Amino acid sequence: MDTNQNFEEVKNRFREADVDGKIQIYTTVQGLTVEQYKELLRMFPIKYLDKLEKAMG
């Protein structure tokens, strides 16, 4: 499976997930580029950024 297709699957799962699911995906997915992480972060609800920061340690 190519990397772009894999990222599209991750992005779709991320989009469909609740806040806790988004945090779980963001903190455990591996092999993404900085730009791909930024793209996921743009889909993350701003009001929960503190929760994401805590989860990232």
Rank of each mutant, 00 (worst) to 15 (best):
M1N: 08
M1A: 11
M1D: 06
D2I: 06
D2A: 04
D2F: 08
D2N: 07
N4H: 08
N6K: 15
K11Q: 09
K11T: 07
N12Y: 08
N12C: 04
R13W: 05
R13G: 02
F14P: 01
F14T: 02
R15T: 04
E16A: 01
E16C: 01
E16I: 00
E16D: 03
A17N: 02
V19F: 01
D20H: 13
D20A: 12
K22L: 01
I23H: 08
I23T: 05
Q24Y: 03
I25H: 03
I25W: 05
I25P: 00
I25T: 09
I25V: 14
I25L: 04
Y26F: 15
Y26I: 13
T27S: 11
T28I: 03
T28V: 06
Q30R: 13
Q30D: 09
G31I: 12
G31W: 11
G31Y: 11
L32G: 09
V34F: 10
Q36S: 04
Q36E: 15
Y37D: 05
K38A: 13
K38H: 11
K38T: 08
E39H: 09
L40I: 14
L41H: 15
L41T: 06
L41I: 09
R42K: 12
R42V: 00
M43E: 03
F44I: 02
F44N: 00
F44R: 00
P45F: 15
I46Q: 07
K47T: 13
K47L: 07
L49S: 10
D50T: 09
K51F: 10
L52T: 13
E53K: 15
K54Y: 14
A55K: 08
M56D: 07
G57V: 10
G57Y: 04
